[in-house]
């Protein structure tokens, strides 16, 4: 596989993407809502405006199931501090896995389906770029912007959390911490790659962008299971869990890439021209 050919496809798509605000706008708006508005309005403000003596509600289970190291971190904290700590550090962690998936879903859905709709696919497939180079190029153009958005969202989220934590924890800044750094730079990329790979496989096999996007929404289900698992206390994003998930997703990514290249057939792509 020639990496420069994959990078060529990436550069071409990236140029096109930058000039298409209908695609780029949702990519930036949705993560901003997840990283700044949602935590500020729904959860963190509630934690800041904490009424002493109020029950922890559903979060009590999360607190109870936290790893022992995290339980130690909560020792000596007031109820308000504990609530804020759990919500900001643990509750939002899996939600950040949705951001790269959402950001990449629009671009990945458009990868081949969009080229079919715009009738540019035939000339692209006629070039001496191999299937794996084409597939990797399309992955990169979804992966790189989605990771930029994810890291940017993480920076915004860290700022929002730290603004509140300075008040609640008397000047202490909670983020970034080690788990979140591993989550953002280790788990989020591997989860994103799996989602992107599957979406691109779908995009190559359907007629249009909308169809690809509708089907790719299904990919959010496993991540939503992690979110609900976290909320219910069944899964806690401690270091061991995050490390195990990274390992599992690396395997899944490699498998998806191999399957994707094997399933990629120019016949199939051209037969689905809109």
């Amino acid at each position: 596989m020639r990496i420069q050919k994959a990078m060529l496809v990436f550069r071409k798509d990236w140029r096109e993407l930058r000039r298409n605000w209908q695609v780029t706008l949702p990519i930036f708006i949705m993560p901003f809502m997840f990283s700044a508005l949602l935590p500020s309005l729904v959860v963190l403000i509630r934690a800041v405006a904490f009424v002493p003596g109020a029950p922890l509600g559903g979060l009590a289970t999360v607190v109870k199931n936290l790893p022992s190291q995290a339980q130690n971190e909560l020792a000596g904290l007031t109820d308000q501090q504990a609530l804020f700590y759990v919500v900001s550090i643990y509750f939002f962690a899996p939600i950040f896995l949705i951001i790269p998936l959402m950001a990449s879903s629009v671009i990945a859905s458009d990868s081949f389906a969009g080229e079919k709709e715009r009738r540019t696919i035939e000339a692209l497939l006629a070039t001496p770029i191999s299937d794996s180079e084409l597939f990797l190029g399309k992955i990169l153009v979804s992966f790189i912007p989605s990771m930029i958005v994810t890291v940017a969202s993480f920076l915004i989220y860290s700022t929002v959390v730290d603004v509140f934590s300075r008040t609640i924890f008397n000047g202490r800044l909670l983020l970034p911490n080690v788990i979140w750094i591993i989550l953002i730079f280790g788990l989020a990329p591997t989860v994103a790659l799996a989602g992107i790979g599957l979406t691109i496989i779908i995009s190559a096999r359907v007629k249009g962008f909308r169809e690809a996007q509708q089907i790719s929404v299904i990919l959010l289900i496993p991540i939503l299971i992690l979110v609900f698992g976290q909320v219910s206390g069944a899964i806690i994003f401690g270091p061991e869990v995050v490390a195990a998930l990274i390992g599992a997703f690396v395997g899944v990514d490699l498998l998806i890439f191999r399957i994707g290249v094997r399933l990629f057939r120019r016949d199939e792509v051209l037969s689905k021209l809109a």
Partner: peptide, 20 residues
């Protein structure tokens, strides 16, 4: 791949990237 390297093709429609 070799065939594609030595062939130039004009497809049924121009197949050009309109935003580029």
């Amino acid at each position: 791949l070799k065939v594609r390297e030595i062939v130039g093709i004009l497809t049924e429609n121009p197949s050009l990237y309109e935003k580029l």
